[in-house]
Simulated scan of single mutants.
Amino acid sequence: MSEWKAKRFWKETSVAEAQDGWQVLLDGRPVRTPLKAPMILPTREMAEAVAIEWDAQEGVIDPLSMPVTRSANAAIDKVSVQHSEVAAMLSAYAETDLLCHRAEAPRELAEQQNKGWNPVLDWAEKTYNAPLIVVTGILPADQPAESLGIYARTVAGYRPFSLTALHDLISLSGSLVLGLYVANGKMDPDDAWHLSRIDEDWQISQWGEDEEATEMAETKRAAFRHAANFLRLAQGS
């Protein structure tokens, strides 16, 4: 028996203001999440982006072609009901932040890390008054408890849609600080992704590319870019 797949059933896609936000209408009926919650979106910009995805569907609905819709579903069905757990998980990245772990050798790699990562850590220290300790090798440092607390409160202050985007910016890069850097509009997401890949790019320069690893990295890069765009839509800018 073949699996049933949802097909396009509507003719007109539109956007309308709703209580506490915006919604997308299919022939006048509001879109709902997979858990049947009303899809109330924080900005008109996000609602229009979701509407474009729905309007582009022809025949069988393909969720993989609807990244903004999928992230909005995650924000409503998952992040909004587990906000404190998600925030705690993300803030824990500060304890072993990628940017705090430097290579002892070779010297060229260490220099690339210092050049790329030090300005981001300096920005975070000045912005949040929350310095982090840089170490060499794989063993983590005991980061200052006050700094960890500041970062925890900062992440917890993100609303569900923005926190959904921040989740991917942090988890994909391995760095809380770099995620916040992008979230604050301090760096283009492509440039930030390159910073998160200094170690991997060094290995490639020495040993050559692995086709499967390269394909996986490209998928993650696209997800990182989407997260930055979703955050922009959530903030209405």
Results as ranks from 00 to 15, higher is better:
M1F: 06
E3V: 11
K5W: 01
K7S: 12
F9E: 12
K11M: 01
K11Y: 00
E12D: 13
E12G: 01
A16C: 07
A16P: 02
A16F: 01
E17V: 02
G21S: 07
L26V: 05
L26P: 11
R29F: 06
A37T: 09
R44Y: 03
E45W: 02
M46F: 07
A47D: 11
E48N: 10
V50W: 05
V50L: 10
A51T: 07
I52S: 13
W54N: 02
V60P: 05
I61L: 15
I61C: 11
S65W: 00
P67E: 02
V68A: 04
N73I: 04
N73G: 09
I76P: 05
V79E: 06
V79L: 07
S80W: 02
E85K: 13
E85C: 01
M89C: 01
S91K: 04
S91R: 05
A92D: 13
T96P: 00
L98G: 02
L98W: 03
C100L: 02
P106H: 05
P106I: 00
P106M: 03
L109W: 03
E111S: 12
Q113L: 04
N114C: 02
N118R: 14
P119S: 03
V120F: 04
V120M: 03
V120P: 07
L121A: 08
W123P: 04
A124P: 06
E125N: 12
Y128L: 12
L132I: 01
L132T: 03
I133K: 15
V135F: 03
T136F: 02
G137C: 08
P140V: 07
A141P: 06
D142W: 00
Q143T: 08
Q143P: 10
L148D: 02
R153Q: 14
V155W: 03
V155Q: 10
Y158P: 03
S162V: 00
L163I: 00
L163K: 06
L166W: 10
S173A: 13
L176I: 04
G179Y: 05
V182T: 09
G185P: 11
G185L: 02
K186W: 01
M187R: 12
D190Y: 04
D191N: 11
L195K: 09
R197S: 13
E200N: 08
W207D: 09
W207Q: 13
W207N: 13
G208E: 10
D210V: 13
A213T: 13
E215S: 15
M216L: 14
M216K: 14
M216C: 06
A217F: 01
T219R: 13
K220Q: 15
A222R: 14
A227F: 08
F230M: 04
L231V: 01
L231C: 10
R232Y: 00
A234G: 10
